[in-house]
Amino acid sequence: MTKMNKQLVKETLSAYRHGFDDPDDPVFQEALSAVEKDPELHEWHQQAILEDQVFRRAFNESPAPEDLPEKIYAQQQSPQILSFPSVKQTFAAAAAVILTAALFLVIQSDGPTSSLTAEEFVYGTFALETSGHRDLDFISSDLDEKIRWLADSNAPTGWDLPESFQVAVASGCSKVHIKNHPVSMVCYRLPEGPMAHVYVIKRDALSQATPPGEVHYDRSGDFSSARWCDGEFYYVAIAQTSPETLAGLFR
C-alpha cells in the first residue's frame, strides 16, 4: 500500500465509529480491510478508536442545565390551548363515553345555529379543552390587538373581565364555535403561574335566562372552572389550578 493510500484510509476512518453499525457501511469496508492487512495502519486504527472513546466520553460528560426540561415544558404549554386529560379520567368510564358523545355534538359547528343552554355552553368549553391540543388562531401579548382580531373574525367582543385578568399576560386568542354560536377564547397566564382559557359568548345566544350573579366554581381532576354572567356576556374560565386559586381572581 502506498503512503497516499494509507492517508486515504486514515481520512476515511476519521468518520468511523467503533461500537456502532459502521462496519456494515460499504464506505468503511475497504478501509477496514486495508487496516487488517497492514500492521502500522492496524496500530494507528486501535489508537484512533481509543482516542475517539475518550473524546466521546468527555464530550458527553459536559452537563446540560438541570432546569432546562422544565423550561421547555413550560414554554411548550404557553402558546397552545391546554388540554385537560385528567378531566376525562375523573369520570366513570360509562358516563365518560356518553358524555363525550354528547359533548362532540355540542361543539359541532356545521349546520344552523341551534338553541344552547348555559349548561351546554360549559360542557362545550370542556369538550374543546379535552379534544386535544390545537394552536391558538392569533398570538399576541397585546390585548387590544387580540380584541381587534376577534372583532374582525366576528367573535364576541366588548366584554369585560375582572381586573386580575387585565393584569395577567394574554398570549393569544381563538374563535371557536359551540353549537354553531361564535365564542371568543382568550389564553391568559395568571399571576400565580397557571394558564387559563376564558371563553366568552353573548348572553342572548343562550336559550335559558342567565341572570348576572355570583361566580360558580367546579372542579374536575386537576382542573377548575369558574362561570359567571356579566352584562351582555356569559363567561367560563378553565385552568389547571384549584378552585380557591381561581376564586382569588374574583375577589
Binding site: W44, Q47, L50, E51, V54, A58, F59
Partner: peptide, 13 residues
Amino acid sequence: DPIPEKYLHQIDS
C-alpha cells in the same frame, strides 16, 4: 497521529 494512550487520561470535558 492520535494522541498517545498515556496522555488520554488527562483529557476531560
